[in-house]
């Protein structure tokens, strides 16, 4: 195939190479490698403390990295941050903060608006459309302190939608959300995927993980497995993620100072 030789290979949407993150003395992520293409809905699952949130944060430069690198479309995050959306965990913010639902969703536009400028009418239109998509338009002028847990989560989702990104990182978007809300969020995620976006969703419920995601990333300190859900969701691999061999790895990580081992 001569044509494929002449055109340079398209870089993957997200490529992670040998990523290592440590908190204090303890490694949280250890030599993570990953390459993901466009239009995929990826679930990140693993036990507590497996480094799921840390992986997301490290990808977006929110946590210091001890080694390795992350590329989006072959470029560092800082150059493409306007093409990457983020849904943090709900508890990370103060929901008594005096802003309205609309204000929060508009924050998703701030990366595009640029310094010193105010949101335009067009930005407001986008924000309204995003609120409509998560069925929160009637709540646009509410103070965020008056929202329920599921509504808060949908506000965060709407804010990420307003970013109009191509890659999304979502940290536990289903935590503390009722079943109906969860279903409506899944619909939104699939719509985004069908539009060609790639989504990484931290999730902790195994049975639903199997239904929701195209691909699963089993994570415990490093990548246990990554691939189509049907292939990866096996008793053997899950066992290796949630118990058995890998806990030994984490024990070694904890004792690293004494052992002096390094990769």
């Amino acid at each position: 195939m001569p044509s494929s030789l002449s055109t340079p290979a398209i870089p993957p949407v997200l490529e992670i190479h040998d990523l290592t993150v440590a908190y204090r003395r303890k490694p949280v992520l250890w030599g993570v490698d990953l390459a993901v293409g466009p239009g995929q809905l990826v679930g990140i699952i693993g036990p507590n403390g497996a480094g799921k949130s840390t992986l997301i944060k490290a990808c977006m430069g929110l946590t210091p990295v001890q080694g390795g690198w992350v590329r989006f479309w072959g470029r560092p995050f800082a150059e493409v941050c306007s093409r990457v959306g983020y849904v943090p965990q709900r508890e990370t913010v103060d929901w008594d903060f005096p802003v309205s639902v609309m204000d929060v969703v508009l924050m998703g536009r701030y990366g595009r608006i640029g310094l010193f400028r105010r949101p335009s009418r067009a930005d407001r239109e986008v924000a309204r459309a995003c609120l409509e998509q998560v069925q929160l338009l009637p709540y646009a002028d509410r103070q965020i302190s008056n929202l329920s847990g599921g509504q808060q989560q949908r506000v965060f989702l709407a804010r990420a939608l307003a970013q109009e990104a191509e890659v999304y990182f979502m940290d536990e978007p289903f935590a503390g959300v009722d079943a109906a809300t969860e279903a409506s969020i899944v619909v939104v995620l699939r719509t985004l995927r069908d539009r060609g976006c790639t989504l990484f969703v931290v999730h902790h419920d195994l049975p639903t993980a199997r239904q929701y995601f195209d691909r699963l990333l089993l994570l415990n300190l490093n990548v246990v497995a990554f691939g189509p859900t049907a292939e990866v969701f096996t008793a053997d691999l899950l066992q290796r993620t949630y118990g058995g061999r890998l806990t030994l790895l984490s024990e070694v990580a904890q004792a690293l100072g004494a052992q002096g081992g390094s990769r």
Binding site: A22, R24, R25, Q66, G67, L256, G257, G260, S262
Partner: peptide, 16 residues
């Protein structure tokens, strides 16, 4: 326990 010097040393170790 987590003195600054120790932390610095640990970090170098993980990195190497």
């Amino acid at each position: 326990r987590g003195g600054l010097l120790i932390q610095l040393w640990e970090r170098n170790r993980v990195q190497s």
